[in-house]
Design a protein around this nucleic acid. Sequence first.
DNA 1: CGCGGCTTTGATGTTCATCAAGTAAAGTGG
DNA 2: CCACTTTACTTGATGAACATCAAAGCCGCG
Lengths: 232, 232
Amino acid sequence: MSPRIKYECSCVECKLKTLFFDKVETSQLELVCSSKIEHQYQKGEFIIREGDFINDFIYLKSGLVKLTRQTADDKEQILSFAKPFDFVSLLSVFSSKRYHYSVIALENTSICILSLDDVKKTILQNGLFSLNLMEKLSEATDNIILDNLEIKRKHLRGRVAHVLIYFSEFIYGKKTIQLPVSRKEIAEYIGMTTENVIRTLSEFKKDGIIRTYGKDIDIVDHERLKAISQHG
Amino acid sequence: MSPRIKYECSCVECKLKTLFFDKVETSQLELVCSSKIEHQYQKGEFIIREGDFINDFIYLKSGLVKLTRQTADDKEQILSFAKPFDFVSLLSVFSSKRYHYSVIALENTSICILSLDDVKKTILQNGLFSLNLMEKLSEATDNIILDNLEIKRKHLRGRVAHVLIYFSEFIYGKKTIQLPVSRKEIAEYIGMTTENVIRTLSEFKKDGIIRTYGKDIDIVDHERLKAISQHG
DNA sequence: CGCGGCTTTGATGTTCATCAAGTAAAGTGG
DNA sequence: CCACTTTACTTGATGAACATCAAAGCCGCG
C-alpha cells in the first residue's frame, strides 16, 4: 500500500472523526488511528459473528447493518439497525469478551477497525476522548432500549407502521424508499410472524396508506401511518 | 457536620467503591466523593422522576428499585429492576439532559448522590476511572437489552416463569421469596395484562410448580419452571 | 431450468386482551 | 377504632389479535 493511499485513509480526513470524536484534537487520535484498517462488505455478509472474541473496536463508515442474535429456540431476533455514526460494536465492547450478537450488512457497507487495546489506552490517556465516547455509547444504547420499549407497547399494525416510519424518516429521510430488509427481517425485528407483517402491509396498501412494488415502498398518507404507529 | 462523621461517610469505607470503581485508587476519588450525599427512600417513593433534569450521578447502596416510564397511551412500562451494584442512573446520564424514565423504590432503599459535573471532571482527569465506569455502564445496559430480548421471544407462561426465576435466582438467591412487585408490576414488565399474569401464577400453583401465599412465593419445581421459561 | 428462499393469501385454531363481577387487603378520615 | 374508599387480587366468559398450516406464485441464482 502506497503512502498516498495511507494518507487518504488517515483519520485526519475522516468525516467520522469530526462527528464521532468531535471534541478531540486530531493529534490525540494518532494511537488509535495508526492501527486503523478499512474494510468493505457486500449486502448479506457477516461483519461480526455472535460468539466472536472482541479484539477490535468497529464503527460504520458507510452503509447499513442489522444487529441480530440467535434465540434458544433457534430463531433470529433483530436487536436494531445501525447506520453510519450510530455506533456499531457498542453493546459488549467494554463489558464482555465475546459478542452477544452478529452484525450483518444490509447494504454495501464499509467499516473502520481499530485495535480495542489502543482504544483502551487512549481512554486511559485522554479524558476528553473518554467523555466523548461515553456520550456516544450512552446515546446509542439509550436509543436501542427506548426503541424496543416503543415496539413492545404496540400491536401488530402499530409495529409495522413504526418500522416503515423508522426507515422512511430516520434512515433515508424521504417518503419513497427501497426497504433494506425483507418482510421476514421486519418480523424478526418486531417479534411477529412474516405472514402477519405481509398481511399488514397489504392492508396499508388497500387502505391507501402506502404503495408497494416489492421492496419499493411509497408512503402516501404519512399522517395516518404516524397515527397508527402511535396508537396501533 | 463533624469531621468524624464526614470521614465515616467518605468513599474510603464504602463497600461500593471496591466494587464499582474497583481499580481506582481511593485518593483519586476525592473530588467526586467530597460532594457525596446519602439519601434514604421508603418503598414506593420516587427517587428519580421521568423528565427531571440530570444533575446528579446516582447509584444504589442498598435496596431494590424499578425503572419505569409512561407510554404515549398513558400506561406504565417497566424497563428493568436494579439492585445494589447494578448501576442506576445509567441510561441517559451521559447523553441526555433529562431522564427518560422514573426510578421508584420497591424496598427501603438508600442511594449515593454524586455531582455529575464532578464525575465528568474525574473522567477527564482519570483514565482508569473512565475505563472502569465504561465497563460497568456497558454491562448494565447490555443486561437490560438482552433481558428484554429474552422476554420478547417468549409467550405468557414463559415470561412469567422468567420473572419468577429472575427474582428467585438473580435478586434473592433462594427458592422461597417475597415478591417485591405486584402482579400489575409483573404485567408492566413483561408486557401482558395483570389478569393473565394472575391466571398464569394460578396455573403454576395448580400444577404444583409453585406455592403462593399472597406475595410469598415458594418455587417447588425449579426444573419445570426453568423449562417453561426456556420454551414457554 | 430447476431449486430454494421470499412473498402472498386463505382457513383454522391458539393465545391473549377485554369486560364483568366479586373477594381480600390496605390505606384514609372521622 | 371502625366505616369507607381505594387498590390489589382472583376467576370466568367472550371476542379480538395473532400464530400456524397449507398452497401457490415469484424471483434470483447456480
